[in-house]
Simulated scan of single mutants.
Amino acid sequence: MRIGTRKSTMALAQTEDIARRLKAAAPDLDVEIVKFETVGDTDQTSKLLMHGGKGGAFVAEIRAAVRAGRLHAAMHSLKDMPGNEDTPGLVIGATLARDPPTDALVLRAGVSMEDIRRSRGKGFRLGTNAVRRAAYARRLFPDIEVIHYRGAADTRVRKLDQSEMQRLPGGGEVGPADALIMARSGLERVGLANRIAYEFSPLEMLPAVGQGIVAVECAAADWQTRRYLSLIDDPAAHLSCDAEREVLWVLNGHCNSPIAGYSTIDAARMSLTASVLDEVGRQFIEVSRSGPAERPRELGRAVGLALLDKGAAAVIERTRPEPIKG
């Protein structure tokens, strides 16, 4: 089985984990990891919306290889997969057990969480490329300066430690950063969990849809690959995947929409919370619902529709990027 993945340290670690699980479940299976340098990896200056969001930057090239038959499967971080569009001919064949989905604060030497809290962020620069994290950060620290910050997880921490300036898409530089907000699971994957200065609870910063879940995508008609992938599929993670992504589908969000969603399962019940924010975090709409865990899409649809009833569509439309000319 040929599995495609990005070349980043974290993506390779995730894909190697998939390969180990497949070999354990099916010892006769040969697994080959095929590395891709996606446009999002080669261009670490532009904002991701210039490439069609995370889907265009990190997912599209590997998906195309699956569709063309050059790969049997593709590894994605679920949060990078667009949820507001159809993917004809492809299916998520497996989701691994969910890693911690929370976001974490990484600080440069000499800065403390108490410093940032006491000042409401005034005088501090926070680096992130995620519009959701930026919006929540501005709610938590109203006076903080959020700066555009790109790169693989380990690269971002190195830039923080070395006080490097960050190049801007239109030219010029910004920075250096005093702090970064990153996924806890990503920091753990690259061996930097010791850099976590503070972990945000879901009540403070609701995770991105699918955050902490590794997904393996394959051709819908490739039943042999689907059979192998089913051997490593985590049912609870797949239920959460279906519920949270249904919210994205209902909202028809885009790559510049600060949308969050997170579900938990307790016995046969699933609880799902999702939110929509404006870019500065001032307008905030949140909905929580629960229902049978065996009907995740139904629950996701109910939450998405409730968000629309509260005005989410107008917030999403205001954050929609202008069409790229050229």
Rank of each mutant, 00 (worst) to 15 (best):
R2A: 09
I3M: 04
M10R: 15
A19P: 10
R21A: 06
L22Y: 10
A26Q: 08
A26L: 03
P27G: 08
L29P: 07
V31S: 06
E32Y: 04
I33M: 07
D41R: 06
Q44W: 02
T45H: 05
K47I: 03
G55A: 02
G55C: 04
G56E: 04
A57N: 06
A57F: 07
V59T: 06
V59N: 05
I62C: 09
A64D: 14
R70T: 11
L71D: 03
A73L: 01
A73T: 07
M75G: 03
H76E: 09
D80C: 00
M81Y: 04
M81A: 02
E85F: 00
E85G: 01
P100G: 01
P101S: 01
T102I: 00
T102E: 12
T102R: 12
A109I: 02
G110A: 03
G110K: 10
G110N: 11
G110E: 10
R117D: 11
R118V: 11
S119E: 13
K122G: 15
G123P: 15
L126V: 06
T128R: 12
N129H: 09
A135Q: 08
A135K: 13
Y136F: 14
P142Y: 06
D143R: 15
I144E: 05
E145T: 10
V146H: 07
R150I: 00
G151S: 05
R156W: 05
R158Q: 14
K159C: 12
K159Q: 15
L160R: 13
E164N: 11
R167V: 07
G172Y: 09
E173T: 12
V174S: 12
D178H: 15
A179Y: 04
A183Q: 12
G186Y: 00
G191E: 13
R195A: 07
R195W: 08
I196G: 14
F200D: 07
S201P: 07
P202V: 01
L203R: 14
I213M: 02
C218P: 07
C218A: 15
A221P: 03
L229M: 01
P235K: 01
H238C: 04
R245N: 07
V247E: 00
L251A: 01
N252Y: 03
G253E: 10
C255N: 02
N256G: 05
G261F: 00
S263T: 10
T264F: 04
I265V: 11
A274T: 06
L277Q: 13
G281W: 13
I285Q: 03
I285V: 08
V287F: 09
V287I: 15
V287Y: 11
A293P: 15
R295F: 08
P296L: 05
L299E: 03
A302D: 09
K310V: 03
K310E: 15
A312G: 04
A313D: 14
R318Q: 14
T319G: 08
R320E: 00
P323Y: 02
K325I: 10
K325V: 09
